[in-house]
């Protein structure tokens, strides 16, 4: 019998969800009171939280465009979140309307909403799965309808790997994906950094730590080691805003310790 990579459980709107909290940071209203309360708590500790989310989202957009520029026309967005403004399929399909995008998220609400949004988009879909099980994700028939594994793929792990503790062997998870994709594929990662945290950021991380989805910040070296035998593209592992800013008047780098990197499978 086929086993889903997620267990049917209650959709709990009494507990904050990472996906909905994140939506709130981005100015969305796809969230409930619990989510907003949690977000406000974080923002009290770290008023920059929404700005950091925006920066992350801006990096996502730049990275997807960069990949489009390399000719990549199919994307797997792992931990895609609740669709908000500037979703991967919007960015990619603005370059090529037939670009294929598969969203993957474990959050039932993110999944349901993404499905509603994508109902009429023949080139994008969403599956509900745990990204910590690469084999299960990659074997998903819906995913395989959209992704041609003989062609390069843009694999996105944006603001999500830091939810995977070391005990879940993140490097093995990344290798599970990178081993399955064609040469020329790229992996896009953004990740909470562990260096240069100020006290407000520490405090915010503390809040997450007590939630059901703690954040594991990692240093640049730790992050690099997760890429295995992939080759980092310029400028390597850097702060979010330093990753290929699109124009000189891009908002100046804030004190955001989050890291970004893109790597290629040769």
């Amino acid at each position: 019998m086929e086993r889903p990579t997620w267990a049917p459980e209650d959709v709990n709107v009494e507990r904050p969800s990472v996906a909905r909290v994140y939506d709130y940071y981005l100015g969305g209203s796809h969230n409930f009171a619990v989510d907003r309360e949690f977000a406000e708590q974080v923002m009290q500790a770290m008023p920059d939280a929404p700005a950091a989310a925006q920066e992350n989202r801006a990096f996502l957009r730049r990275a997807v465009r960069y990949l489009c520029g390399l000719g990549i026309r199919q994307f797997i967005d792992l931990g895609s979140g609740i669709p908000t403004v500037g979703n991967v399929h919007e960015v990619a399909q603005s370059t090529d309307p037939t670009a294929e995008v598969v969203y993957v998220d474990i959050d039932p609400v993110a999944y349901a909403h993404s499905r509603a949004i994508l109902a009429n988009n023949p080139h994008a879909t969403v599956i509900r799965a745990d990204l910590r099980q690469p084999a299960g994700v990659l074997a998903d028939p819906k995913l395989r309808e959209h992704i041609d594994f003989d062609q390069p793929v843009g694999l996105l792990l944006v603001a999500v790997l830091h939810f995977v503790p070391d005990s879940d062997r993140p490097a093995d998870i990344v290798a599970g994906y990178s081993g399955a994709i064609a040469p020329g594929s790229h992996l896009v990662v953004s990740h909470m950094g562990a260096e240069g945290l100020d006290s407000s950021q520490d405090q915010a991380l503390g809040l997450y730590k007590r939630s059901s989805t703690p954040i594991v910040p990692r240093t640049a070296d730790e992050l690099s080691s997760l890429f295995g035998d992939l080759t980092l593209v310029e400028p390597g592992v850097v702060r979010l805003s330093e990753w290929r800013p699109e124009s000189p008047d891009e908002p100046a780098a804030r004190e955001n310790p989050a890291l970004a990197a893109v790597a290629r499978r040769d």
Partner: peptide, 17 residues
């Protein structure tokens, strides 16, 4: 958006059920 998220939550819940 509230309607969307509510609908999504409903949908998710009924799917889980």
């Amino acid at each position: 958006e509230q309607e969307e998220i509510r609908a999504a939550a409903m949908l998710a819940r009924s799917e889980a059920e």
